[in-house]
Design a protein around this nucleic acid. Structure first.
Lengths: 259, 259
DNA sequence: TAGATTGTTAATCGATTAACAATC
DNA sequence: TAGATTGTTAATCGATTAACAATC
């Protein structure tokens, strides 16, 4: 938190507490816009012309008051007594999220996860274009993954610059993540989606979002344990004198290649 | 929101607003415990005996006031003027998260992502044991992935029951996710980690957490756009009369198999 | 005792929600 | 006009943070 480098704060806050500039859409609302968009797109495909806040909220898995409040930050796009025009709302939300433009991304680290992401259909359909797949393992170079040749990480800087890549996806092992991140940032990337289980340090102005399998599972385990505890009842049995064994060891490798 | 089925609320809330029972640890704190645990485990491996809230907070990427507040929900495990005993804290957090017990999980849908998860080292090291890999494609049955044979989804119910699986990971295409979810829940699974881009409906008492690639990227794009907007300055140019084209289409496939 | 650092308080901030007036 | 549904208000709740007394 010193040195002019900021460290991502909570698991997923991006850089911005800054009520995101302009009119200022709250972070919690921004995080839900993609959910609404997905539900709306499904309605659009079924040629449903309009939808009420109640229906759309149910489809997106939120309550309707929250949805209306969220939409109120975007403007008044509904019609009282009627609902929202599906197509129009799809467009407005897409525009708000920046999905009406082209976003070239690079994926660094082409292990199983990198593969999975490269093949992910949700990419292309939302304005995200895979500009390159990069891996530190020269043996992978040239190999086709999802129709694209894997290229060596030596080419990272050149690709980021020439393709004007502003978003980088890191699927390397944790040990390589910070270094890859530094290089991406130095080359001009200002948003990073990090799948490596590491805290990345980035300069101000760079957003980092983190996806962490292990953390999600641990949170589930916590709740699962509490459910089981309903039967046992945790009679606040105090702390055993000795820490004992059972200490969890860190063996966090998400992928094998790259760096 | 009717029928006794609850729908997961925000992207990642699990079922519990219930200040998680007992002493009641806030959800935001629970979500950070794995981060602290990771940082502590790294210190433990370097044989660091004690750590201050300031140091640990920096390593975990949070501020120290938040960390101390978080720890205060667990108990008073520090020593004023000294800091926290690393090993002891690792043990306490592990215990709190339920990681000192064995959690058998099944992964349903063995495409690239299922592969990546099966190979994920962070699993085994934290008490999570892959009890089975399941896929609806019979052609995959018997094939070894991460040393385990893929089994047909027909065996799902039997495996969940016999292995006492309470956590299921869904990496199927979106179309199959709800059905797979229903079967898992019917068989006894009470926590689900969903990678398919679908809102899952589950009965009360079942926790769902969602990991969604596309959503994370869209949130990054939003912030990225705002950064660019600093130059252009969005002079509140009002809504174009016609929605126009550029409508984003839904082609969300995360994987190919299963269901 | 002096220095360091925790654990807690209290203020602030942001997010959620119910309720309802506005209005189609 | 009557019915439906939005957009907004205001109350509530939960999370963050700085500051500092307690205490090692």
């Amino acid at each position: 938190m010193a040195t002019g480098r900021s460290t991502q704060n909570n698991p997923n806050a991006a850089a911005s507490n800054r009520r995101s500039r302009g009119r200022g859409i709250p972070d919690a609302t921004v995080a839900r816009l993609p959910l609404y968009l997905r539900a709306l797109t499904a309605l659009s495909e079924r040629s449903v012309p309009t939808v009420s806040s109640e229906e759309l909220a149910a489809a997106a898995g939120v309550n309707s008051a929250k949805l209306r409040k969220d939409f109120s930050y975007l403007g008044s796009y509904g019609t009282r007594g009627v609902g929202y025009d599906v197509e129009y709302l799809v467009y407005q939300i897409s525009r708000e999220l920046g999905l009406t433009q082209d976003w070239p991304v690079v994926i660094v680290g082409i292990g199983n996860l990198g593969h999975a992401l490269a093949n992910y259909g949700g990419f292309a359909s939302r304005g995200f274009r895979v500009a390159a797949l990069l891996d530190a393992d020269a043996a992978l170079s040239g190999q086709l993954v999802a129709g694209l040749p894997v290229r060596h990480t030596d080419e990272m800087e050149e690709i980021v610059r020439s393709e004007r890549v502003s978003i980088g996806v890191i699927t390397t092992p944790p040990g390589a993540a910070q270094q890859v991140c530094d290089r991406l940032v130095a080359a001009g990337v200002t948003s990073i989606l990090n799948f490596a289980p590491t805290v990345l340090n980035v300069p101000d102005g760079v957003d980092v979002r983190k996806v962490d399998l292990s953390i999600e599972l641990q949170i589930l385990a916590f709740h699962e344990q509490r459910k089981a505890g309903d039967d046992l009842d945790d009679a606040d049995q105090e702390v055993p004198a000795t820490p004992s064994a059972a200490v969890v060891s860190e063996g966090t490798e998400l992928e094998e290649a790259a760096g």
